[in-house]
């Protein structure tokens, strides 16, 4: 069974849903892809400091064409901006911030995630290996959020009992935002905290390769 593209949150809606939960005053690192859509979707009045592993704390949104600066990019090597109060530093200090436990949240993409909080997201057969800073981030950030499609392109579950791909980290994920809902790894099962609009429990069960316990008590 594959996910109908119309089921659940769009990429935009998913980024918005994760952005809604980023608390005021948080220091946050964003992975490549949907997580990078979060800064421009933060609710009004919330002050959040975005860290990028290439050495900037205080990353802003996408620049206007006349603002493009080769020396200001995000970890995805896209042009970015900096907010007032931003700071810049070298890669060693940047990862002292990461590894030293100074980030509140790392928001990453994911290929597979398990109820015990294991995450696989750095390589798959036939893919160029891109470990980048992912292993440092899952080690050091106080919370690790994973934002992902609920299934892969072939319709296979990404929330599964055991990762079949090489791990980025074990027992590191604290929250999952999938196209079908918001989940937390709970050891032997996933807790579903919220379903995306129009998504029912049966759909989630059918597309998840692990037990799911729903907020209303359903299994």
């Amino acid at each position: 069974m594959s996910v109908d593209e119309r089921i659940g949150w769009s990429r935009d809606g998913l980024a918005q849903r994760a952005a809604d939960d980023v608390p005021d005053g948080a220091y946050v690192n964003l992975g490549i892809g949907i997580p990078m859509m979060i800064p421009s979707r933060l609710p009004e009045g919330r002050e959040v400091w975005f860290h990028t592993e290439n050495g900037i704390l205080g990353l802003g949104g996408v620049p206007e064409p006349d603002q493009i600066d080769l020396d200001v990019q995000n970890a995805g090597k896209e042009y970015a901006t900096m907010v007032e109060g931003a700071s810049t530093f070298d890669s060693s200090l940047s990862f002292a911030i990461v590894r030293g436990g100074h980030l509140d949240i790392a928001v990453l993409g994911g290929m597979q995630v398990t109820p015990s909080g294991d995450l696989a997201n750095w390589t798959a057969p036939g893919r160029t290996p891109g470990v980048g800073g992912a292993m440092d981030l899952v080690t050091g950030a106080k919370q690790v959020w994973v934002v992902l499609d609920h299934t892969d392109r072939a319709g296979k579950a990404k929330l599964m009992r055991r990762c079949t791909l090489p791990l980025t980290g074990a027992r590191c994920v604290t929250r999952i935002y999938s196209t079908l809902g918001v989940f937390e790894p709970a050891g032997a099962h996933f807790d579903c905290l919220e379903l995306a609009p129009g998504v029912d429990e049966q759909t989630v069960r059918g597309l998840t390769d692990a037990e799911v316990v729903f907020a209303g008590g359903g299994r």
Partner: peptide, 12 residues
């Protein structure tokens, strides 16, 4: 002296 995000791996 480096500029903005270009310091990165140059120091290490």
């Amino acid at each position: 002296a480096f500029r903005l995000g270009s310091r990165n791996f140059n120091v290490p």
